[in-house]
């Protein structure tokens, strides 16, 4: 082996290495650095070890935020996956209806996330919002800025409106990939509509649904912009999710140490879920080849 050739390879790897270093590794290390120091001003720092981690892990507000986060992600999956599948099943299979439905479904996905929050904020305001005014006019008390339940309903509605189309599009793609012969054979075999769904459509959608579940879990788990714009985490802390809390801690209160510790814990949770995501996807792939 020629040493000179080996050295030249470094130049080819260097750009990627630099980009990754500046975009991921160095910022992450700075967070690690902040998480083990007490920083009260520039040049004024004390090493505190695992102090912040202990504090953060024992933080009641963090526990509440994590519980809310898991509830939110769970509800998102429970509602959006079946609803998305139902929409996909109801979508036309051919003709002009296909492009119209696809366009309508894609619209919410194209809107910037903070704009989504703004839209729903305006939509549900009890004083000027279309939905808010309508509901209150009908005698139903509805105020997402005051009632935690109303805030939750609004956040859920918003997320379902925003992301169910993604699930529907994925499920639709899965359905379209089923050869016609399957439906014909099922008719010859005398299968009911339920049996067709249970034994043909659902198994054939398994791969895309797996992806939909994992994408929706990840996205809902790190959700920030929409609920922040919509409710600001309130009323009280009722819609404060993990990232909302993190930003409050780091930005609002400038508690850099605890915020950094929380960020690391959050990052590890996300990493763990990513790993599960990756493994599950690999299994889906090998499952098809069997």
């Amino acid at each position: 082996m020629n040493k000179w050739q080996d050295n030249r390879a470094w130049f080819l790897v260097m750009p990627v290495f630099l980009i990754v270093a500046f975009s991921a590794i160095i910022p992450l290390m700075m967070v690690v650095d902040a998480s083990v120091h007490d920083i009260s001003g520039p040049g004024n720092r004390v090493f505190v070890g695992a102090e912040w981690f202990k504090e953060v892990l024992g933080d009641r507000r963090l526990h509440d935020a994590l519980r809310r986060q898991l509830t939110f992600s769970g509800l998102v999956l429970l509602i959006e996956i079946p609803l998305g599948v139902a929409i996909a099943l109801a979508m036309p299979r051919r003709g002009w209806g296909v492009s119209v439905t696809l366009l309508v479904l894609a619209l919410p996905l194209l809107i910037p996330w903070n704009v989504i929050g703004t839209i729903w904020n305006l939509f549900t305001r009890p004083d000027i919002g279309l939905l808010g005014v309508l509901l209150n006019g009908l005698g139903i008390q509805f105020d997402p800025t005051a009632a935690p339940l109303d805030a939750w309903i609004t956040v859920m509605l918003m997320d379902v409106w925003h992301w169910t189309p993604l699930v529907a599009l994925l499920a639709y793609a899965g359905l379209r990939a089923i050869p016609d012969a399957y439906y014909l054979a099922a008719r010859i075999d005398g299968a009911s509509a339920w049996a067709v769904f249970r034994y043909i459509q659902l198994p054939k959608m398994r791969g895309v649904l797996m992806i939909a579940v994992l994408l929706r879990f990840m996205d809902s788990f790190v959700i920030y912009a929409e609920p922040f714009v919509l409710t600001g985490g309130g009323p009280g802390d009722s819609t404060t999710f993990l990232s909302t809390y993190l930003v409050k801690l780091a930005g609002g209160q400038s508690d850099l140490g605890p915020a950094a510790a929380l960020a690391l814990i959050y990052f590890l949770i996300a990493l763990a879920v990513c790993f599960a995501f990756y493994r599950a996807l690999q299994n889906v792939g090998s499952g098809d080849q069997r």
């Binding site: 008719r187 010859i188 198994p203």
Partner: peptide
């Protein structure tokens, strides 16, 4: 009559099996 009400069976070009069964 619908296919299920006729005593006719049909085999297609693509082998059709119910994957989960």
């Amino acid at each position: 009559l619908a296919p299920r009400d006729r005593n006719i069976a049909q085999v297609f070009q693509v082998p059709v099996i119910y994957d989960t069964m």
